[in-house]
Design a binder for these strands. Structure first.
Lengths: 200, 200
DNA sequence: GGACAGCTGGACGCCACGGTCCAGCCCCGC
DNA sequence: GCGGGGCTGGACCGTGGCGTCCAGCTGTCC
């Protein structure tokens, strides 16, 4: 059962194609035939790489989308030790959602993929943990650097920021307006960056 | 086609029963047979009251759940003119989500019902508008009363709070932890209530 | 109390969709 | 260049679930 380069490519095509479709129209209404058509594959290939069928594909798509979410915040997420890098991170996040609008990976993750199975749920929770960890490291670094008051609660601050992004994305998907994300990010980043709106 | 008391009761039973099922297990996996069983009704009744079938029922459930969300914030949402009433509102919201946990109406609204059809989407957007309006009225009242600095941006503040609740609910559903909602509410209410954690 | 309109029950049809199967192709390894 | 195992195509099947239909009941109005 050694998988060759061609096989890996087909599998990859299935996952990314399915992810795209599910972002556009929702996971629930995306059926296998659509995925096959969009990726120029056939039933047997899908079931070859995902013996559990649809369920397995959903899990793979969930993992894939989690990576997309993290990737979209690179490289800033990995080094949030200065006010400048926080501002750049913020800018990058906003730009990303301006670009993708309602078709963002986060949306399908939280609303559909994350609840599709216990396994998928764990994967999404893993995303939140990684994310929160990176934000916490950033807050901690800001404290160590003396850029913010030392009694700032590290975990709570990180959680507020993460929650702000989630809420902003929900409202973006619902209303199409970015202002919710923008405003709330300003509010929650205020302890780190001082007066909001200092940088767009 | 005048509808009688008995008919109205049957219709109501269908809507609230369907809403309950959809909160528990998700709208996508809730089928009509389950709704019929849970509400002691039959196919013909459902299609009698909802000629559009499942789609029409979903719209009705959406409206119903929107009312539940507003109702859960009563009476505080209608008069947020003092720090006390804001604190009571905050406490009420938290209590509500402690109680319902992941089975809250908000969750199914944002993640499933709101995207089930353009009509449902409009209904959910109406909820956000009403909600934001009530919060704005509260912020404005606080300014008029001189309880907060007059240059506080009314709309942005209201939007931050609304977004905080959304994000908190998302994280609650994902992780089962209430702390995200709690923390972010504290952060966003800070401009109105001063130092957070003054009241549980 | 009779008649008509609303209301109810459940059997039935249809089809979309997930999943199975197998015959044949391609490509790596020797 | 040849053998074999991964890889591919597509026909096929079973079923769950939405929606239809009609016969019979109920209850309201005159």
């Amino acid at each position: 059962m050694r998988t060759t380069a061609r096989g890996a490519a087909t599998r990859q095509r299935l996952v990314s194609g399915a992810a795209l479709l599910m972002r556009e129209q929702g996971a629930a209404v995306t059926n296998l035939d659509q995925v096959l058509r969009a990726t120029s594959t056939s039933k047997s290939q899908l079931f070859h790489y995902f013996p559990d069928g649809r369920a397995g594909l959903l899990v793979a798509v969930t993992s894939y989308e989690v990576e997309q979410v993290i990737e979209a915040q690179r490289p800033h997420l990995d080094d949030l030790s200065t006010a400048k890098s926080w501002r750049e991170w913020r800018g990058g996040v906003l730009r990303h959602y301006v670009e993708l609008g309602e078709r963002c990976p986060m949306g399908s993750l939280t609303s559909e993929l994350g609840t599709s199975s216990p396994e998928a749920r764990n994967i999404v929770n893993g995303l939140y943990d990684r994310w929160e960890g990176a934000l916490m490291a950033g807050v901690q670094a800001m404290i160590v650097n003396g850029a913010v008051r030392p009694d700032l609660p590290v975990r709570d601050t990180a959680r507020s920021i993460l929650t702000a992004v989630q809420g902003g994305v929900v409202m973006l998907r619902a209303t199409g307006r970015l202002s919710y994300l923008e405003t709330t990010l300003d509010t929650t980043l205020e302890p780190l960056l001082g007066t909001p709106r200092a940088a767009a």
